[in-house]
């Protein structure tokens, strides 16, 4: 096999397939994201639930750029569905770090893949970030619609320091998800011979 490290057609197809699985599950869990306040723990839950999918993907395609491409398609898709440019720009940074972490583990070490996924999982925080960036306008509307008091309590919850907690939650969720993925890999996918 020449060019062992280059993505083949088969790898690219696998990327497309797993993006769909990831995307559908993301939307399934996304209901939580629709509930106010709970959307702050959405990234954590997303990490726990999708860990298996991405860890299986990383086991299947142990090559450079695989996780980066997979990770960029979802935000680009969401961008074409009306999210702002913040999401893809934010994701480029996130996915670059995730890619570098995988590279450090030579694409197969569980430990590095786990950290890579934990970082990967923070891309969704970008959608909350874009809400923070429109906060002034949002508060203005909230005050006029819901009254000062309510707007005030909202302002206290959605802040940049609290965002740090959201990122932390995303990373923790990612680590838990990666471990669940590891269990499933051992229990099912390796035995079934698909990795």
């Amino acid at each position: 096999m020449k060019n062992n490290k280059k993505l083949t057609v088969k790898d690219l197809v696998t990327i497309g397939i797993f993006t769909v699985v990831y995307f559908v599950v993301m939307f399934g869990v996304g209901m939580i994201g629709m509930v106010p306040i709970l959307f702050l723990i959405y990234p954590t839950i997303l990490g726990v639930v999708t860990g298996t999918i991405i860890m299986l993907f990383m086991a299947k395609v142990q090559k450079p750029w695989a996780i980066f491409i997979l990770g960029m398609i979802s935000p680009l898709l969401m961008f074409s569905m009306g999210h702002t440019y913040i999401l893809p720009v934010h994701s480029i940074i996130v996915m670059t770090i995730a890619e570098l972490l995988r590279k450090a583990g030579e694409y197969k070490s569980f430990k590095y893949n786990m950290f890579s996924f934990a970082v990967f999982n923070t891309w969704i925080c970008g959608s909350i970030m874009q809400m923070l960036l429109v906060k002034d306008r949002y508060l203005e509307m909230t005050v006029s619609t819901m009254g000062e008091e309510f707007a005030g309590s909202m302002e206290k919850i959605v802040t940049f320091p609290n965002m740090a907690l959201v990122y932390l939650g995303a990373i923790l969720g990612g680590i838990v998800g990666a471990y669940i993925g590891k269990v499933f890999l051992k229990k099912h996918f390796e035995k079934a011979g698909i990795v």
């Binding site: 993505l7 690219l12 197809v13 990327i15 993006t19 491409i69 960029m72 398609i73």
Partner: peptide
Amino acid sequence: RAVSIPVAVMFRFFPSF
């Protein structure tokens, strides 16, 4: 190609999924 093939596959795979 690394982007256009996965995206084309996604269109194909959504209904299968």
